[in-house]
Measured scan of single mutants.
Amino acid sequence: MPSETPQAEVGPTGCPHRSGPHSAKGSLEKGSPEDKEAKEPLWIRPDAPSRCTWQLGRPASESPHHHTAPAKSPKILPDILKKIGDTPMVRINKIGKKFGLKCELLAKCEFFNAGGSVKDRISLRMIEDAERDGTLKPGDTIIEPTSGNTGIGLALAAAVRGYRCIIVMPEKMSSEKVDVLRALGAEIVRTPTNARFDSPESHVGVAWRLKNEIPNSHILDQYRNASNPLAHYDTTADEILQQCDGKLDMLVASVGTGGTITGIARKLKEKCPGCRIIGVDPEGSILAEPEELNQTEQTTYEVEGIGYDFIPTVLDRTVVDKWFKSNDEEAFTFARMLIAQEGLLCGGSAGSTVAVAVKAAQELQEGQRCVVILPDSVRNYMTKFLSDRWMLQKGFLKEEDLTEKKPWWWHLRVQELGLSAPLTVLPTITCGHTIEILREKGFDQAPVVDEAGVILGMVTLGNMLSSLLAGKVQPSDQVGKVIYKQFKQIRLTDTLGRLSHILEMDHFALVV
Results as ranks from 00 to 15, higher is better:
Pro2His: 12
Pro2Asp: 10
Pro2Gln: 13
Glu4Asp: 11
Pro6Gly: 10
Gln7Ile: 06
Ala8Val: 14
Ala8Trp: 05
Glu9Gly: 11
Gly11Ile: 03
Pro12Trp: 08
Pro12Asn: 11
Thr13Gly: 11
Gly14Val: 11
Pro16Arg: 02
Pro16Asp: 08
Arg18Ile: 11
Ser19Gly: 10
Gly20Asp: 10
Pro21Ile: 05
Pro21Tyr: 03
Pro21Ala: 07
Pro21Asp: 14
Pro21Val: 04
His22Val: 13
His22Leu: 10
His22Met: 03
Ser23Ile: 12
Ala24Tyr: 09
Ala24Met: 10
Lys25Asp: 15
Lys25Ala: 04
Lys25His: 11
Lys25Ile: 13
Gly26Tyr: 07
Gly26Phe: 10
Ser27His: 12
Ser27Gln: 11
Leu28Ser: 11
Glu29Leu: 12
Lys30Ala: 10
Gly31Leu: 03
Gly31His: 10
Ser32Thr: 06
Ser32Asp: 04
Pro33Leu: 08
Pro33His: 10
Pro33Arg: 12
Pro33Val: 10
Pro33Cys: 07
Pro33Asp: 10
Lys36Phe: 15
Ala38Leu: 12
Ala38Gln: 06
Lys39Cys: 06
Glu40Thr: 11
Leu42Thr: 11
Trp43Val: 13
Trp43Tyr: 13
Ile44Lys: 13
Arg45Leu: 14
Arg45Ser: 09
Ala48Cys: 11
Pro49Phe: 07
Pro49Ser: 11
Pro49Cys: 09
Arg51Ala: 03
Arg51Gln: 09
Cys52Met: 00
Trp54Asp: 06
Gln55Arg: 15
Leu56Glu: 12
Leu56Gly: 05
Gly57Phe: 09
Gly57Ile: 09
Arg58Tyr: 05
Pro59Thr: 12
Ala60Cys: 10
Ala60Gly: 06
Ser61Leu: 09
Ser61Gly: 03
Ser61Lys: 06
Glu62Ile: 13
Ser63Gln: 04
Ser63Thr: 09
Ser63Trp: 00
Pro64Arg: 03
His65Ala: 03
His66Met: 11
His66Val: 14
His67Ile: 11
Thr68Gly: 13
Pro70Thr: 10
Ala71Thr: 15
Lys72Ser: 04
Lys72Cys: 09
Ser73Met: 13
Ser73Gln: 13
Pro74Trp: 03
Lys75Gln: 11
Ile76Asp: 07
Ile76Leu: 15
Ile76Thr: 03
Pro78Val: 06
Ile80Leu: 05
Lys82Pro: 09
Lys83Cys: 10
Lys83Pro: 08
Ile84Cys: 09
Ile84Phe: 11
Gly85Met: 05
Gly85Glu: 06
Gly85Val: 13
Gly85Ile: 03
Asp86Ile: 09
Asp86His: 11
Asp86Pro: 10
Pro88Ala: 06
Pro88His: 04
Met89Glu: 04
Val90Trp: 01
Arg91Lys: 13
Ile92Val: 14
Ile92Pro: 00
Ile92Arg: 04
Asn93Gly: 04
Lys94Trp: 10
Lys94Gln: 13
Ile95Trp: 00
Gly96Leu: 05
Gly96Glu: 10
Lys97Asp: 15
Lys97Gln: 12
Lys97Met: 09
Lys98His: 11
Lys98Gly: 14
Phe99Pro: 03
Gly100Glu: 09
Leu101Ile: 06
Lys102Leu: 09
Cys103His: 04
Cys103Leu: 05
Cys103Asp: 01
Glu104Lys: 14
Leu105Cys: 06
Leu105Pro: 04
Leu106His: 10
Leu106Phe: 15
Leu106Pro: 09
Leu106Ala: 11
Ala107Asn: 01
Lys108Cys: 00
Lys108Gly: 01
Lys108Leu: 02
Cys109His: 04
Cys109Pro: 08
Cys109Lys: 03
Glu110Gly: 00
Glu110Met: 01
Phe112Ala: 05
Phe112Glu: 03
Phe112His: 00
Phe112Met: 08
Asn113Gly: 09
Ala114Phe: 03
Ala114Asp: 08
Ala114Lys: 06
Ala114Pro: 05
Gly115Tyr: 07
Gly115Cys: 08
Gly116Cys: 13
Ser117Arg: 04
Ser117Gly: 07
Val118Thr: 06
Lys119Val: 01
Asp120Asn: 08
Asp120Ile: 07
Arg121Glu: 02
Arg121Trp: 00
Leu124Ala: 11
Arg125Cys: 08
Arg125Trp: 09
Ile127Pro: 06
Ile127Phe: 10
Glu128His: 05
Glu128Phe: 08
Glu128Ile: 13
Glu128Val: 15
Glu128Met: 14
Ala130Trp: 00
Ala130Asp: 08
Ala130Phe: 03
Ala130Tyr: 00
Ala130Arg: 07
Arg132Val: 06
Arg132Gly: 05
Arg132Asp: 10
Arg132Trp: 04
Asp133Cys: 07
Asp133Val: 12
Thr135Trp: 11
Thr135Gly: 07
Lys137Met: 08
Lys137Ser: 06
Pro138Phe: 10
Pro138Met: 07
Gly139Trp: 09
Gly139Pro: 08
Gly139Phe: 12
Ile142His: 02
Ile142Ala: 04
Ile142Pro: 02
Ile143Gln: 01
Ile143Met: 07
Ile143Thr: 03
Glu144Thr: 00
Glu144Gln: 06
Thr146Asp: 02
Thr146Trp: 01
Thr146Lys: 04
Thr146Ala: 04
Ser147Thr: 04
Ser147Val: 00
Gly148Cys: 03
Asn149Tyr: 01
Asn149Lys: 01
Thr150Leu: 01
Thr150Trp: 00
Thr150Tyr: 03
Thr150Glu: 01
Gly151Ser: 03
Gly151Asp: 01
Gly151Phe: 02
Ile152Met: 07
Gly153His: 01
Gly153Ile: 01
Gly153Glu: 01
Leu154His: 01
Ala155Ser: 13
Ala155Asp: 04
Ala155Thr: 10
Leu156His: 01
Ala157Cys: 09
Val160Asn: 05
Val160Leu: 11
Arg161Gly: 10
Arg161Trp: 07
Arg161Phe: 05
Gly162Ala: 01
Gly162Pro: 13
Gly162Leu: 05
Arg164His: 14
Cys165Ser: 06
Cys165Gly: 08
Ile167Gly: 08
Ile167Val: 04
Ile167Leu: 11
Val168Cys: 06
Val168Met: 07
Val168Arg: 04
Val168His: 01
Met169Lys: 07
Pro170Met: 07
Lys172Cys: 00
Met173Thr: 08
Ser174His: 00
Ser174Val: 00
Ser174Lys: 02
Ser174Phe: 01
Ser175Arg: 04
Ser175Lys: 08
Glu176His: 00
Val178Pro: 07
Asp179Gly: 09
Val180Thr: 09
Leu181Tyr: 00
Leu181Lys: 01
Ala183Tyr: 01
Ala183Glu: 04
Leu184Asp: 01
Gly185Val: 05
Gly185Leu: 00
Ala186Gly: 06
Ala186Ser: 03
Glu187Gly: 07
Glu187Ala: 08
Ile188Glu: 00
Val189Glu: 07
Val189His: 07
Thr191Asp: 04
Thr193Gly: 08
Arg196Phe: 08
Arg196Thr: 10
Phe197Thr: 06
Phe197Glu: 06
Asp198Cys: 09
Asp198Ser: 09
Pro200Gln: 08
Glu201Leu: 10
Glu201Gly: 15
Glu201Asp: 14
Ser202Gly: 07
His203Pro: 06
Val204Lys: 07
Val204Pro: 08
Gly205Arg: 12
Val206Trp: 02
Val206His: 01
Ala207Tyr: 00
Ala207Ser: 08
Arg209Leu: 08
Arg209His: 05
Leu210Arg: 02
Leu210Pro: 01
Lys211Gly: 06
Lys211Ile: 10
Glu213Pro: 06
Ile214Val: 06
Ile214Gly: 03
Ile214Tyr: 05
Pro215Ala: 06
Asn216Ile: 07
Asn216Gly: 05
Asn216Ala: 08
Ser217Met: 01
Ser217Ile: 02
Ser217Arg: 02
Ile219Tyr: 05
Ile219Met: 07
Leu220Ile: 02
Gln222Ile: 00
Gln222Met: 03
Tyr223Arg: 01
Arg224Met: 06
Asn225Ala: 04
Asn228Arg: 01
Asn228Val: 00
Asn228Lys: 01
Asn228Met: 00
Pro229Trp: 01
Pro229His: 00
Ala231Lys: 07
Ala231Gly: 07
His232Cys: 00
Tyr233Val: 01
Asp234Asn: 11
Asp234Cys: 01
Thr235Leu: 11
Thr236Tyr: 00
Thr236Asp: 01
Thr236Glu: 01
Thr236Gln: 02
Ala237Pro: 07
Asp238Ile: 08
Asp238Leu: 04
Asp238Thr: 04
Glu239Asn: 01
Ile240Ala: 01
Ile240Asn: 00
Gln242Glu: 14
Cys244Ile: 02
Cys244Ala: 03
Gly246Asp: 05
Gly246Tyr: 07
Gly246Cys: 01
Gly246Met: 08
Gly246Ile: 07
Leu248Val: 13
Asp249Asn: 06
Asp249Met: 01
Asp249Leu: 04
Asp249Val: 04
Met250Asp: 01
Met250Gly: 02
Met250Ile: 10
Met250Tyr: 05
Leu251Asn: 00
Val252Gly: 09
Val252Asn: 09
Ala253Trp: 02
Val255Ser: 05
Gly256Cys: 00
Thr257Ile: 02
Gly259Pro: 01
Gly259Gln: 01
Thr260Phe: 00
Ile261Asn: 01
Thr262Tyr: 00
Thr262Trp: 03
Ile264Leu: 15
Ile264Gln: 02
Ile264Phe: 12
Ala265Cys: 05
Arg266Thr: 07
Lys267His: 08
Lys269Thr: 08
Glu270Arg: 07
Glu270Cys: 02
Glu270Lys: 10
Pro273Ile: 08
Pro273Glu: 09
Gly274Ile: 12
